[in-house]
Amino acid sequence: MAGPAALLASISHQLRGLRTLRLLLGVGPQGDEAMACGPPRRPRPTAQTQTAGAGGSRHGAGDAHELGRTWGPEAEGKASGESPGGEAPGAARPGTLREAALRSKLARVAGAAARLVEAEQTLLLPLLQEHPFPVHLKDSIEFRNICSRMALQKEGQQFDRDLHEAHQCLKTIIEKLICSLAVFPSESYSPVRSTLRQILQNLLAI
């Protein structure tokens, strides 16, 4: 597919995947900067949020945090009936470091996806209206599907695999965009090529 309509469709699928990643992280729609820097800190509960949690009648950031706790060793421990109450004070729970590493990688993948969407909307779309080039829609659909699958997983190993696949799929999307732009030697394409290469470089460092 080629042209603005193809890119807009691709962006739409990427955004759906990105929203899922944000829910897993427990951040709002404007959480791109926090995701780029790493996993966000969970705010301390206030009387209002405690009341909302007890009543179950309010929805918002609290729901996102609950979604963020549906994966990883902590959730697995709850599912198996294990309780951290018997641990000695100051003792590190098994899997804590692994869960933190997973959350950090998830945050960085989401941050890369957010920067990619921004580059596509602000830099690629105007150029595409002048000079259409191929857009590989199926990769963005696959990214969305992987993210949706991640939201349903409760097993740590499966979540690891899905997160790796999401990382690789995002890498493929960026590489194909760079390849499509390579046929245009015009200097007007230099900023977007440079931006995509920087996003790819950051993604490869994860």
Score class of each variant (00 low, 15 high):
127 L>Y: 00
100 A>Y: 06
195 T>K: 06
12 S>L: 02
63 D>W: 04
38 G>C: 09
70 T>N: 10
188 S>R: 06
66 E>N: 05
27 V>M: 03
179 C>H: 12
153 Q>D: 04
173 I>D: 01
75 A>E: 03
5 A>K: 06
136 H>G: 04
146 I>C: 01
129 Q>E: 09
102 L>W: 13
175 E>Y: 04
161 R>F: 10
71 W>F: 12
114 A>G: 01
17 G>K: 02
41 R>D: 13
87 E>Q: 14
112 A>V: 04
15 L>T: 11
85 G>D: 11
185 P>L: 01
81 G>H: 03
164 H>F: 15
200 L>E: 01
37 C>M: 11
196 L>I: 05
15 L>R: 13
52 A>S: 09
195 T>N: 04
169 C>Q: 13
42 R>C: 00
172 T>C: 08
100 A>G: 03
143 F>D: 00
50 Q>I: 08
92 A>D: 12
113 A>H: 01
92 A>R: 14
57 S>E: 15
179 C>V: 09
131 H>F: 03
79 A>D: 09
132 P>V: 01
49 T>L: 00
57 S>L: 15
145 N>R: 12
67 L>I: 08
55 G>R: 15
204 L>P: 03
198 Q>S: 12
189 Y>M: 03
177 L>S: 06
78 K>M: 13
62 G>K: 07
202 N>M: 08
26 G>E: 02
61 A>V: 05
205 A>K: 13
205 A>D: 13
10 S>Q: 09
14 Q>D: 12
196 L>D: 04
136 H>Q: 12
169 C>P: 02
7 L>V: 04
95 G>R: 07
157 Q>P: 05
19 R>S: 10
124 L>W: 03
104 S>D: 13
168 Q>S: 14
112 A>H: 05
42 R>K: 08
172 T>R: 07
164 H>A: 15
68 G>F: 09
146 I>M: 00
188 S>A: 06
91 A>I: 01
107 A>D: 01
53 G>T: 14
163 L>E: 08
154 K>Y: 05
105 K>A: 05
50 Q>R: 12
100 A>V: 08
121 Q>G: 00
100 A>P: 07
95 G>Q: 05
82 E>R: 15
57 S>R: 15
162 D>M: 14
175 E>C: 05
204 L>V: 11
47 A>V: 12
90 G>N: 06
206 I>T: 06
31 G>S: 10
96 T>W: 12
155 E>H: 03
56 G>C: 02
73 P>W: 11
84 P>D: 03
150 M>C: 14
47 A>L: 15
94 P>M: 02
152 L>F: 02
36 A>P: 00
11 I>C: 02
155 E>I: 02
29 P>N: 04
116 L>C: 01
181 L>K: 01
103 R>W: 11
36 A>D: 00
103 R>V: 11
74 E>K: 03
108 R>N: 03
183 V>K: 11
199 I>H: 02
116 L>K: 02
38 G>T: 07
193 R>K: 15
39 P>Q: 00
